[in-house]
Simulated scan of single mutants.
Amino acid sequence: MTLFRALSTIKKNERNEIANPLENIEVDYYFMASRFAGSKEIVSIWLWSVIVDNEGYVYAMKTTQIGDYFEWEQLIRNRISEHLYTLGVDSLIVKRLVRDIDIKKEGHIIKEDLRSNGDRIGIDGSNEIYLRKDKFSYIR
């Protein structure tokens, strides 16, 4: 059981759902994290999941979470799963995609703390989605 509580969620999608979820879908994530109020076990995580469908449409979701440090990997898997489900992707495909994602800090953690409050999805407080273009082959 994951012991995280969502504080906020922001979505920015180029379409309401993926037109053909049986085609190739690419997924990436990145996050910023810090200890919450100096705790050794509680962390605050800002997590972005980015999905690109085979037509190059981008679907992004940012969530702010507070919870148990030792559950951070499962949190990422759960958020990516939730994001895919909201886009109309079948549960078997979601399970396969999430199973194949290597959840790790290296290459995914944003080291410079750029967090800003507000209802914008960008890592720097803007409304621009941060895309690591080397992670996607379908970007238009």
Rank of each mutant, 00 (worst) to 15 (best):
I121S: 05
E106R: 10
D68S: 09
N78H: 13
I66S: 05
G107A: 12
V52K: 10
V94L: 00
K111Y: 12
L75S: 09
I80Y: 03
E71V: 05
R96N: 04
L87I: 06
L84C: 01
W72D: 10
H83L: 04
Y69S: 12
R77F: 06
R120W: 06
G56P: 00
E73Q: 15
Q74T: 15
L114N: 04
H108G: 13
I101Y: 03
E71S: 12
N78Y: 11
D113W: 13
D100G: 11
S91Y: 02
L87S: 05
L87Q: 04
D100Y: 03
R120P: 00
K104F: 00
S126W: 09
N127A: 09
N117V: 03
K105I: 07
K105Q: 14
I129P: 08
T64Y: 14
K111D: 06
G67I: 08
G125S: 10
T64W: 12
L92Y: 11
I80W: 03
S91M: 04
S81I: 05
K95L: 06
V52H: 06
S91L: 02
I80F: 04
Q74D: 15
R120F: 08
L92C: 08
G107M: 07
R99K: 14
S126Q: 13
I66D: 04
N127K: 11
G56Q: 13
T64I: 09
L75Y: 13
G107P: 06
Y130D: 02
R99M: 08
G125A: 12
I51E: 01
S81H: 06
R99Q: 11
E106K: 11
D53C: 08
L92A: 13
K105G: 09
N127E: 15
I76P: 05
R77K: 15
M61T: 14
G107K: 06
I76C: 10
D90P: 00
R96G: 01
L114Y: 00
E112P: 01
G67P: 08
I80G: 00
M61N: 11
E82V: 05
K95G: 05
F70I: 13
D102T: 08
D102V: 08
V98Q: 02
I51Y: 07
D119T: 02
I103D: 11
G88M: 09
N78L: 09
K105L: 04
A60V: 09
G56E: 14
D68L: 08
L75G: 07
N54P: 01
L84F: 01
E112G: 03
I76D: 12
T86V: 04
L87N: 03
R79L: 11
E55D: 14
E82A: 12
N54V: 01
E128Y: 01
G118I: 07
W72G: 03
R79T: 15
N54R: 02
L75N: 09
N54G: 02
D100N: 15
V89K: 06
N117I: 02
Y69H: 10
G107N: 09
A60P: 03
E128P: 00
Y57I: 03
T64H: 14
V52D: 07
I101H: 07
R99W: 09
